[in-house]
Design a protein around this nucleic acid. Structure first.
Lengths: 243, 243
DNA sequence: TGGACACTTCGATACCGGGCGAAAGATGTG
DNA sequence: CACATCTTTCGCCCGGTATCGAAGTGTCCA
């Protein structure tokens, strides 16, 4: 007997199927930091031969999950957009759910929990901390989506983030993004990306070997502390010497 | 050669694989309205034989995507939680992306775009409209996540929504939820669920044959209009008779 | 222009997983 | 206790697809 129920929804199965293969999932995850990687690199990262990788990438391309930029004899692949990254993060969230993490978890996994980029913005403990600092200092207001305060706009400007320019994108401005390691919120959206980019350039954070893993520099630690302190500064004019 | 890169992330491939099969995707989608359905029903909806369905359900159970409630000789399956529903909706969003919708789309798909439930809250055009009304009337404030105003708390109480009780859940209170048909926001989270439930009981909306599809009743239309009008009410004391 | 390199296409193989019918549990009903 | 219903388990078949080696295409460099 044929199906009694014709699927009226956008069929999600094909999309899921694209992510369902370990090799493809590895490639997509590797692209999660927003960079464009060459086909050969992706083959290596996924642990498959170049022909196999090429086949996978062709399917991802066909399915609209990635885009390709031909440059000389290289072909650089990158995620097709923030929605794709969002799907991957959400999948990771349910996948990591009931997991009873063994104490001897791998170093990479631990670092990934410390600080990482989620497509193009900061996530992990560092991401949660940064958001905490920005809120505590009164740069941001809101709970699950944020607005920049007057002081926030000024101070972020000093840090190299042109808030007004950021607002002019089609992307959601400053949504709270639920972290799958911390289970708490960090700053996502256009503002999250802009702030991350600016602080990266400013040397607060440094990319790790696995590029998605991020390291908080000494400068970054001081900076965060200064933002926190900013709250005190305005009320008590109390200056905290930092390290 | 073995993979050079040990996947440090929660591996998303297994989760995606669970959704990747058309039969399983159909079952999950069928459960997206939040009900618990018997194994046999799911078999019929997915268009497969009972044994096949059983096998699929066992895998979904194993993977933590669904829960089961044994009741007599029936076994009722339901989604394991809002996160699972979220994954499905997000997948639908990317799946439906570049789709050049043919004008002759199926009746079901059109109805689904009009009004439907997204796990446990209202979505589609009706969901977007409802959110619009609530915001216009000043019940809700915010852009991407909402807060209930004083008046909102009072008026929603009259409609049967105990806002304070809703706030006491672990779930996100009132996040904006991006619609995959409308590409605009509707009200999600705990408040979205509560409001939907209350208005359903109040007869503003009625479940369709496919239970996820929802129909706006005459009463509902008037109610929405009254909420919009409410903005005027406070200023001009204009009372609209409602049924 | 020849050769090295990056990537893709092609062809062949092996395997996983979805599908069903038959039969076995489980649970109500007469 | 016998029977009907719902669900699961078992055994088997089959198709799709992931995989790789070899060969083909395009690009850069000397």
């Amino acid at each position: 007997m044929v199906a009694e129920h014709i699927a009226a929804d956008a069929d999600i199965a094909p999309v899921a199927a694209l992510i369902a293969d370990p090799a493809r999932a590895a490639m997509l995850t590797a692209l999660l930091d927003g960079r464009a990687l060459a086909a050969g690199e992706l083959a290596g990262l996924a642990g498959v031969s170049p022909p196999t990788a090429s086949s996978h990438l062709a399917r991802l391309l066909e399915g609209g999950m990635v885009e390709v930029i031909a440059q000389g004899r290289h072909r650089y692949y990158r995620l097709a957009g923030p929605e794709v990254a969002e799907v991957l993060e959400v999948l990771a969230r349910v996948g990591a759910r009931p997991e009873v993490r063994s104490l001897r978890q791998s170093r990479q996994a631990r670092l990934l929990g410390e600080a990482r980029t989620c497509y193009d913005h900061l996530a992990g403990r560092a991401g949660v901390d940064l958001l905490g600092a920005l809120k505590a200092a009164g740069y941001l207001a809101g709970e699950e989506a944020f607005e920049v305060t007057g002081r926030g706009r000024r101070e972020l400007g000093d840090l190299g983030v042109d808030v007004d320019a950021v607002r002019d994108t089609r992307r959601r401005f400053a949504p709270a993004c639920l972290d799958w390691t911390e289970r708490r919120f960090h700053l996502g959206g256009a503002l999250g990306a802009a702030v991350t980019c600016a602080l990266m350039e400013r040397g607060w954070y440094r990319r790790g070997v696995v590029r998605r893993v991020v390291e908080v520099t000494e400068k970054g630690r001081k900076g965060i502390a200064a933002i926190y302190a900013c709250k005190e500064l305005t009320s008590h004019a109390l200056v905290t010497e930092m390290r």
